[in-house]
């Protein structure tokens, strides 16, 4: 590990992390404030939502077969953690992850930090550790905001639910951060690395939506990392261990792949 590189990368990421975290915190607290209204008119809302086509729910990450608006967890899942939160956090992770190597090669700054007596693998690992720290910051501020919203607006969330949500959100972002750093280690332009991972995410999302619509192609869900993303189960304290484990395995595998690729590649800006 290289502390100077960790410190520099954290410094580079500090404002980006801050603004993404702040945006998500405001959104979570704002949405939580609607929960008392929903609770008072729960039955009417339920009936109204049941009339919408299933496709619409699937697009926004809601499984209509499971609890939807019957609890604070279901409400926050439908309104925040099912779609808006992962979409926003993924933009942060993909852009930041894609920058770790490719952007520095593109801008010509890589030649300076690659001329220091530290191996490429250690330098990139340090950048990955800094990115992980930023991910934890974004996740912890979001779960803290959720705990605050739950307390303030009568939601019923347990400590177990919050811990499991933290694990689910972190592992989910780690998986795509790993893929983003792998793409960044391969590419020489940030836009190419981000575009590659963005394309993969879009494919996984479409696969996941289609797999939820009909039994015939149900097997497609195994091709998408989004299948293992289950914030509702996490908030209810029922998160199966294998789901975050799968995300972590993919993230760590891709992260190690990034170290290997970066150690062996040519640096041509």
């Amino acid at each position: 590990m290289s502390w100077p590189m960790i410190a520099k990368t954290l410094r580079d990421l500090r404002w980006t992390s801050f603004w993404y975290a702040l945006g998500l915190v405001i959104y979570i607290v704002f949405l939580s404030s609607f929960y008392p209204t929903l609770e008072r008119q729960r039955e009417q809302f339920e009936q109204l939502f049941r009339q919408y086509p299933e496709f619409l729910f699937r697009v926004f990450g809601i499984d209509p077969e499971r609890a939807m608006m019957t609890s604070f967890a279901g409400f926050m899942h439908a309104e925040t953690f099912g779609f808006i939160w992962p979409a926003t956090a993924l933009i942060f992770v993909v852009l930041s992850g894609a920058a770790v190597v490719a952007q520095e090669i593109e801008r010509g700054t890589a030649e300076f930090w690659l001329s220091v007596p530290v191996s490429r693998a250690r330098l990139l690992l340090s950048k990955q550790v800094a990115l992980l720290t930023s991910i934890l910051f974004v996740v912890l501020t979001s779960t803290a905001a959720l705990a605050l919203g739950s307390q303030a607006f009568g939601g019923e969330l347990t400590a177990r639910g919050l811990v499991q949500l933290t694990i689910a959100l972190t592992s989910f972002l780690v998986s795509f951060a790993g893929l983003a750093t792998l793409a960044s280690a391969i590419a020489s332009e940030r836009s190419k690395a981000a575009g590659l991972v963005g394309g993969v995410i879009l494919l996984m999302y479409l696969t996941w939506v289609v797999a939820g619509l009909t039994e015939d192609v149900r097997w497609l869900r195994y091709l998408s990392l989004l299948t293992a993303y289950d914030p509702l189960a996490a908030m209810l304290g029922e998160l199966p261990w294998y789901k975050p484990a799968l995300h972590l395995i993919v993230g760590l595998g891709a992260g190690i792949g990034a170290l290997v690729v970066f150690s062996r590649r040519d640096i041509v800006s």
């Binding site: 100077p4 801008r107 010509g108 700054t109 220091v116 007596p117 530290v118 800006s269």
Partner: peptide, 23 residues
């Protein structure tokens, strides 16, 4: 390097301190 491109948002002293920290 032949084409010197530095981190634009750093000051000169931050740039030197950063690279010195590896030595």
């Amino acid at each position: 390097p032949g084409d010197v491109r530095l981190w634009e948002n750093m000051t000169g002293v931050q740039f030197l301190d950063f690279l010195c920290a590896f030595r």
